[in-house]
Design a protein around this nucleic acid. Structure first.
Lengths: 168, 168
DNA sequence: AAAATATAGTTCGTGTAGAAACTATTTAAA
DNA sequence: TTTAAATAGTTTCTACACGAACTATATTTT
């Protein structure tokens, strides 16, 4: 298995997700990243959070999140309100319209993958999950760079850790 | 395992790849998608191909490929030449400068993942590859849409197929 | 041969996505 | 307390990525 092969396969997967995103965007008017933000907000206390938290949750650059939020804001799905004692920070809060959208549509979206996953055996799901995590570890360039040379032992331990973290 | 979880994990992986891409872009002046195109051309007879072939290989939209090629063209890493008997088609060909770049740098890039993969056992690699393919199948919205309801049997057969296609 | 369709590419508009540079504010250090 | 450093966000620039609409050829149908 070559680097290029893995790369292309992963790109294909993400391409599929993006295509799905575009499709949803046409149907609902919002993209998956935007939906992820709404979903995150709906799980938070008072349905609000700081851009910083969102950034950390979806693991994106501050500027990217900034763009996503302003697009959501222009659709009135989220709103901004300043934090009382810190003029730097701004709450991003879910609007009723945003909650509406979330309430009406996501089941369709959510259940799509779930249905496909249900067709797999528990063993297959466990294996899939474990390997996604393994990929995360292998591909996580930043972490690898932080500890330049992972030994076989390290990687195996990580694998075992992941494995035991997600028992079937 | 929830939809959102898988989505976010996959997004993280791709984010890592993109970060790697940006890093390479700064170092070499070209991105991973651009590099994939060069690499593909270097594998072709006479080091040339049509945009259409490239499109199919990297699995991207025609307009995306068009953009990548014009960026490569402006860096004189590829050039265009019309196909004799079909004025619609244009050969994209690797330039000497493009071959140079490919010859000098990619080992560094290629070996990065290879080294990490070498740390895995053959069994782990086989399992990883199989699960990436499984993900491709699960995520490939288009194919799923074409045959709306895959049965458990279908999916299992696909899994088995993938499994036997890549024996350890 | 003329009309319809298919193929190859490009252009345009929009949405991610990141780095770098920046503003503004807050906190820590001197 | 003044300076330095950290934090929160935004803006600008570039690249990727898509669909839709478009141009220009080729091929197929009628």
């Amino acid at each position: 298995m070559k680097y290029i092969e893995i790369l292309i396969k992963l790109r294909k997967i993400i391409r599929s997700i993006n295509l799905e995103s575009k499709k949803i965007e046409k149907e609902l008017g919002i993209s998956i990243p935007q939906l992820l933000v709404l979903q995150y907000l709906s799980d938070q206390k008072d349905y609000r959070a700081f851009a910083k938290d969102i950034k950390e949750y979806i693991n994106l650059n501050a500027s990217t999140v900034s763009g996503i939020i302003s697009r959501l804001e222009s659709k009135v799905l989220v709103a901004k309100s300043p934090k009382p004692n810190d003029k730097r920070a701004t709450y991003i809060l879910l609007t009723a319209k945003g909650a509406d959208l979330l309430y009406k549509y996501p089941p369709t979206l959510q259940e799509k993958l779930s249905q496909r996953l249900k067709k797999l055996s528990p063993n297959q799901i466990e294996e899939l999950d474990r390997n996604i995590d393994l990929l995360t570890i292998i591909m996580d360039v930043k972490d690898i760079d932080a500890a330049p040379l992972l030994t076989i032992k390290d990687l195996t331990e990580l694998t075992v850790k992941v494995r035991t973290d997600h028992p079937q």
